[in-house]
């Protein structure tokens, strides 16, 4: 297990008897350099894994907050090659870095070529929200050739059979989308999360990360009781949106939120 794999980060967290904190931002938001600065801030303030969003024109799994950020990144002409540049800059910190991407940009770039360039940028793998293992043979083969993490999603509506099929095809960790709905911060955590994590863990030894709109340390602590990782996205995006006029203040607020969440995952 290489030190930049997500499994390593989860194992470290487990050895410290805590959950891992996975932080998401779209590449190119607020611009390419701004996204690099923000993700490095999240690394220094305590994120164990960075999830870099590849901005896409038709993000069916994202709520309005992340949609708006991705839209802004696209309006800044963020290209797939820019995303790989962001991966390289963030992975250079030594923190495992994965890309979260809808499928068409990868298919367009070329699956083999994307896997090669992601690996050479130091990326650990992909989270693929709109393909399932039964539609992802090409990616699975390309990832297996390069030992890249394949992070597929499970959902409360997944049957036990599908959860088993999905986890059998994952490497790194399993992404549990614990509300039936899209990304976005919520005021209460979902009671669907616990049972989903339990059903998932019954099929695999891989760590299970939960994404369901966590926005503060208290919610992170709640999820960390039963999950191996807490995935946070919209809350980070919102902090940057709220401080769009003052980048330095935005980074300070981002750091403060990360520290709050990092305390939360320490249970």
């Amino acid at each position: 297990m290489s030190v930049n794999s997500t499994a390593h980060a989860f194992a470290t967290a487990r050895s410290e008897d805590r959950a891992a904190l996975v932080g998401y931002l779209p590449a190119g938001f607020p611009d390419v350099q701004g996204s690099i600065d923000a993700m490095r801030t999240m690394v220094s303030a305590g994120c164990d894994v960075i999830e870099i969003g590849l901005p896409y024109s038709d993000p069916v799994m994202d709520g309005p907050t992340i949609q708006a950020a991705a839209q802004q990144a696209l309006e800044q002409k963020t290209r797939t090659t820019d995303v790989l540049r962001v991966v390289e800059a963030v992975a250079a910190t030594g923190t495992p870095t994965v890309v979260m991407t809808y499928w068409n940009p990868v298919e367009r770039y070329g699956v083999e070529r994307f896997a090669t360039d992601l690996a050479s940028a130091g990326g650990a793998g992909l989270i693929t929200p709109d393909i399932t293992p039964d539609s992802g043979a090409e990616w699975i083969a390309a990832a297996d050739d390069r030992d890249l993490d394949k992070i597929f999603l499970v959902a409360p509506s997944s049957t036990d059979e599908r959860i088993a099929m999905t986890t059998a095809n994952c490497r790194g960790f399993v992404y549990a989308t614990a509300v039936m709905g899209v990304t976005g911060t919520r005021s209460t955590t979902s009671d669907l999360a616990g049972p989903l994590v339990a059903r998932t863990k019954a099929t695999t030894d891989l760590p299970v990360g939960v994404g369901l709109g966590v926005s503060n340390g208290a919610q992170a602590r709640e999820i960390a009781q039963f999950a191996d990782g807490v995935i946070v996205g919209s809350a980070f995006v919102r902090v940057l949106q709220e401080h769009s006029a003052d980048r330095a203040a935005g980074l300070r607020a981002l750091g403060a939120l990360t520290e709050d969440l990092a305390r939360g995952v320490r249970r």
Binding site: W103, P129, D130, T132, S135, A155, S157, R162, T177
Partner: peptide, 9 residues
Amino acid sequence: RFMPEALIA
């Protein structure tokens, strides 16, 4: 069927 797992069922 290139869809999120949440809709497969």
